[in-house]
Structures are given as structure tokens and as C-alpha cells.
């Protein structure tokens, strides 16, 4: 493919190219983490299944619904901004951030319950991965909430497209993390 054709293909990507570089990088990191989780699981499937039974699948399921709804709000914010409805776009961003906060609150309750039950990173390799992967993801959710606040303040269309793309990446990672860590037996 010629250089011009490559540039043309890259320009087809919605939003900022650097955000796509970040999205792909993050997917590779989390993807490697999940693959490592399943690889280690092959050495102790019984132990992983017992450890997984200690997770709160309902909380994980609720958080999935919360995060995909938050993603919808972020996508609607971009749509409203394109239509020059800035206040509405900001309100959608606020709703997305609030739902992100709810996700973190549910996650904090989940962590609190585990810690109260004496379950830490050293309890079993399953929980090492659990805390590492879901904790790293929660850090991205926290960063995403800050980004949503920033783009609500500096609300150019380009900023909204770029910032919400980060939020959707966080969403995308969760829909892969949740089934592998919480549901696969």
C-alpha cells in the first residue's frame, strides 16, 4: 500500500489518531494480562474456580450495565455537540461521569468486602490477577472521569471525540475483563 493510501486509511479513523494509538496500546496491555490469567489458570483450574466463587457476580453484572450505559451517555454527548447543543452535550458528559463514579463505588464496596474477608493479592494467584487487572481498570475509570470533566469544560468537538474515545476504551476493556475473570468456569 502506498504512503498516500496508508495516510488516507488512517484519516478514516474517527477522532484523533493518537487516541487510537493509546486505545490499541491499552488493549494490548489488558489483552496480555487476560491471556496471562488464563495461562496461569491452566495450572490450577480447581483453585481458580473456588476463588472465582468468592467474587460477587451480581456486582460485576451491575457494573457492566452501569459502564455500557455511561458509554451511551458519552456517545450521545458527541452527537449533541455535533448538533451545536453544548449544554445538552455537557449534561450527557455529566451523566457519563456520574455513572463512572457509581462504577467505582460498586468496585470499592466489592474490594472492601474482599479485604474484610481477609482476601488479598497473596491469597491465591487468581486474586493477584483480580486485583491487578480490575484495579488497573478502575484507575483508568478514575482517569476517564477526570477527562470527561476536562472536555465538558473545554468542549470543542475534537476534544469531545478524543476524550469520549478514551471512555469507550475503558468500556471495551471491561466487557472483556468481566466475562473472563467473573464468569468463565
Amino acid at each position: 500500500m502506498s504512503e498516500g493510501a496508508t495516510e488516507s486509511r488512517l484519516s478514516e479513523l474517527p477522532g484523533d489518531l493518537m487516541m487510537w494509538v493509546l486505545i490499541v496500546s491499552e488493549l494490548l496491555v489488558f489483552g496480555a494480562g487476560l491471556a496471562a490469567f488464563l495461562a496461569v489458570r491452566t495450572t490450577d483450574t480447581g483453585g481458580f474456580a473456588e476463588a472465582q466463587d468468592l467474587l460477587d457476580r451480581t456486582a460485576g453484572g451491575i457494573n457492566t450495565a452501569v459502564l455500557v450505559t455511561s458509554g451511551l451517555c458519552a456517545a450521545l454527548a458527541v452527537r449533541w455537540r455535533r448538533a451545536h447543543r453544548r449544554l445538552g452535550a455537557r449534561l450527557w458528559l455529566g451523566a457519563a461521569a456520574l455513572l463512572g463514579g457509581l462504577f467505582l463505588w460498586v468496585k470499592a464496596v466489592e474490594y472492601g468486602d474482599k479485604i474484610a474477608a481477609g482476601i488479598g493479592t497473596e491469597t491465591h494467584p487468581f486474586f493477584t490477577f483480580y486485583y491487578l487487572l480490575t484495579g488497573f481498570h478502575a484507575a483508568h475509570v478514575a482517569a476517564g472521569i477526570i477527562i470527561l470533566g476536562l472536555i465538558a469544560w473545554r468542549d470543542s468537538l475534537n476534544n469531545l471525540e478524543t476524550g469520549t474515545a478514551f471512555w469507550h476504551m475503558v468500556d471495551l476493556v471491561w466487557v472483556l475483563l468481566f466475562p473472563v475473570i467473573y464468569l468463565l468456569r
Binding site: I23, A75, H168, D171, L172, V175, V180, L184
Partner: peptide, 20 residues
């Protein structure tokens, strides 16, 4: 089945939310 459903969820986010 769970992995297949995860794949379809990820595809939906890529195509609808991220605009692919």
C-alpha cells in the same frame, strides 16, 4: 458461548460507540 458474547459486545462498542 461466554467468550463469543464478549466478542460481540466488544464489536458493538467498536462499531457503535467508537464509530468504526
Amino acid at each position: 458461548l461466554i467468550l463469543a458474547l464478549a466478542y460481540f459486545k466488544a464489536r458493538l462498542i467498536l462499531s457503535r460507540y467508537l464509530g468504526l
